[in-house]
Write a protein that binds this DNA or RNA. Structure first.
Lengths: 194, 194
DNA sequence: CAGGAAGCGGAATTACGCTTCCGATTTTGG
DNA sequence: CCAAAATCGGAAGCGTAATTCCGCTTCCTG
């Protein structure tokens, strides 16, 4: 029950402020340093003490999970936008491109997407399902239109995306190799010629 | 100067035995547990003490590097075999397939190939160069024969291979998803149709 | 087969980072 | 403005795993 907060009085003003600061700082530091970002760094970055940090998030994993949840909402947003593209093939391509573009530069999100064990997926179930649903629709439409391999399913989306993401992750930030990698993958996903 | 061992007396018999045991055990444990394999586990697995382990390898990184070096020699062997295939396109495909097949099930080698920072590449320069040379020849030949994209170079080999390897690594061992991923990648690397 | 160099064992040392604790401080409701 | 409740700060506690140290043992040479 991640967010079963029915009868809960609103946070005290300072607490809300701090919580936001924490999420912002942690998002930034995790993006830069991946899971190696330290709790102390994060607290310091906000000018807060450890106690405060731990009052808001019981442990590092919970903090990371909260951030990944937020990122996923952003992804769903992007996917919805891609869905608006008229051409089914172009819509799929945009969805994939935007997804990767969004992951670029965010080491912790990359790790999370690749499936290292540092996120409580239980607590992001909803956000993830929302995203999956949209992508599924996009893929189905593109397949029906004959724009991409007919055997492509939603399960392939993480597969191919994560491959490209690993190129991002294990390369110095800013290295553009992954875009070339993406071109190969996109070519491979096209409807094969006879 | 990694191996500038000119005037070096041969290891004592027991020492040589132990060194081999260490490499074997470490190779196994790193394969199974990745970089999380512990030095103590490795020592125990050989029935040796920590001191012995550290006499042979000054630290964990050196041990890992030694093992990756050995693996790379194996890779070069495989690449040479692939080069014997008459059809240039098939040779390339075999080289890629065999490379990945060899990495399957070896978590530490996968990490190393993806480029996490746990290997001293300096100390494996030779083995790596040897491998690169062979793969370069294979790619050049396949390009000339028109079997694969004309813009493909050696630099793309790690790129596409590592994408697939990340699917291996971040999936429970034995999961075959990466083979499907590989099919996409192979399709994407083919000469594009007009 | 004796002497000494080369090796070995494994407990103790270090280092590092997450997490906990609790007195001090700030906010809020009346 | 006051007292209770909610928050905060940051030093101390812990667990983990690499690495070091050094007295003891085993192999090799003459």
């Amino acid at each position: 029950m991640p967010t079963m907060t029915a009868t809960e009085r609103p946070l005290r003003a300072d607490a809300r402020r701090n919580r936001e600061q924490i999420i912002a700082a942690a998002g930034e530091l995790f993006a830069t340093h991946g899971h190696d970002a330290q709790m102390e760094q994060i607290a310091a970055h906000c000018g807060l003490g450890m106690g405060t940090l731990y009052r808001h998030f019981p442990n590092k994993r919970a903090l990371l999970t909260a951030i990944v949840g937020a990122r996923f909402q952003g992804m769903a947003e992007l996917a919805r936008a891609a869905e608006q593209v008229a051409d089914p093939g172009a819509a799929f391509e945009k969805a994939l491109r935007d997804y990767l573009e969004a992951a670029d530069g965010d080491a912790a999100f990359q790790l999370a997407l690749m499936g290292d064990g540092t996120v409580n997926w239980e607590d992001v179930k909803t956000e993830k399902a929302e995203f999956a649903e949209i992508i599924t629709r996009i893929i189905t439409r593109a397949v029906k239109a004959g724009a991409i391999r007919p055997d492509l399913t939603f399960a392939d989306f993480p597969l191919i995306a994560h491959g490209v993401i690993s190129t991002m992750y294990y390369q110095p930030a800013g290295n553009p190799d992954w875009r070339r990698h993406l071109e190969f993958v996109l070519a491979g996903v096209q409807t094969p010629h006879p």
